[in-house]
Amino acid sequence: MTALLLNGKELASKKREQLKKDVEQLASKQVVPGLAVILVGEDPASQTYVRAKEKACEQAGIHSVLIKKPNTITEEELLAEIERLNHDSSIDGILVQLPIPEHISEQAVIEKIAPNKDVDGFHPINIGKMMTGEDTFLPCTPFGVVEMLKEAEIDIAGKHAVVVGRSNIVGKPVGQLLLNENATVTYTHSRTKNLRELTNLADILIVAIGKPEFVGAEDVKEGAVVVDVGINRVDGKLVGDVDFDSVKDKASYITPVPGGVGPMTITMLLENTVLSARKRS
């Protein structure tokens, strides 16, 4: 058995075509969705991500504003910039590209963004709403993962989902979203004992730890759905947290790296921005 590919690139392309139509519909009501991205410093990976976001916005017809700030910016100055954008009626979504310099509190930055413009879905108010199943902006990568599963018509309800990793950006929220879809969820992490025993129980295995090819065939149950959120550069090549070549012959579905979860993250960011604009239309 060779696993079927969960192709994020294809689904992202399909969703972006629909988003383009949604943006055109909003434009007919004189509403142009606006996304502001704040980039602090010269981190090469961040610059690459931001360029990809700008390009995606342009293709969808979303008004995109890039605000570059030096590494020397103070926390007070950055928070003042966010406050200005909170009151800018042409901006529907605000995103501060992480990581930011160590002298600035990441939590203070996240909490400064108005919840109704928090298209990254990280504000404590939006996280709380996600926990209780209320309508809110969902964190983009976990949102993308669940959309991929639904698109492939993989039944989530009643399945045992095992999440490897507990970050605030992916691990914790993806588990919560799967719970909201009626899965039984187990979280595992660096302190988990008998990790392999738990991953072998997973009907749906989500791996998000940032360790290249950490999960192999021996860690996966026959016929499991395997979603690899990891992106690691090894010898100039991008690989995931899952050893794709060994796992693909054991899983029923698997995401490739690159071309799996990655393209969905930016797509769900655009979707959240359009959703925010729709609320003011």
Rank of each mutant, 00 (worst) to 15 (best):
T2L: 08
R16P: 05
R16T: 01
L19N: 01
E24A: 13
K29E: 14
V32C: 00
P33A: 10
L35F: 07
V40T: 06
Y49M: 10
E54S: 14
E54W: 00
A56C: 09
A56W: 01
Q59H: 04
K69Q: 14
P70N: 05
T72C: 01
T74S: 15
L79A: 08
E81I: 10
I82F: 03
I82P: 00
L85I: 07
D88E: 14
S90K: 14
L95H: 05
L98E: 11
Q107S: 13
A108S: 15
K112P: 00
D120E: 15
M130V: 06
M131D: 12
L138W: 00
T141I: 12
F143R: 10
L149C: 09
K150N: 13
A152W: 03
D155R: 13
A161H: 04
V163K: 02
G165T: 07
V170F: 12
G175P: 09
Q176F: 09
Q176T: 15
L179C: 08
L179N: 12
E181G: 02
T188P: 12
S190M: 05
N194W: 01
N194R: 12
L195R: 08
L195Y: 01
L198I: 15
N200F: 03
I204T: 13
L205Q: 12
A208C: 14
K211N: 10
P212M: 06
G216Q: 12
K221I: 06
G223D: 12
V225I: 15
V227R: 02
K237Y: 04
D243F: 09
V247G: 08
K248W: 00
K250N: 04
S252N: 09
G259C: 12
L275I: 02
K279P: 03
S281Y: 06
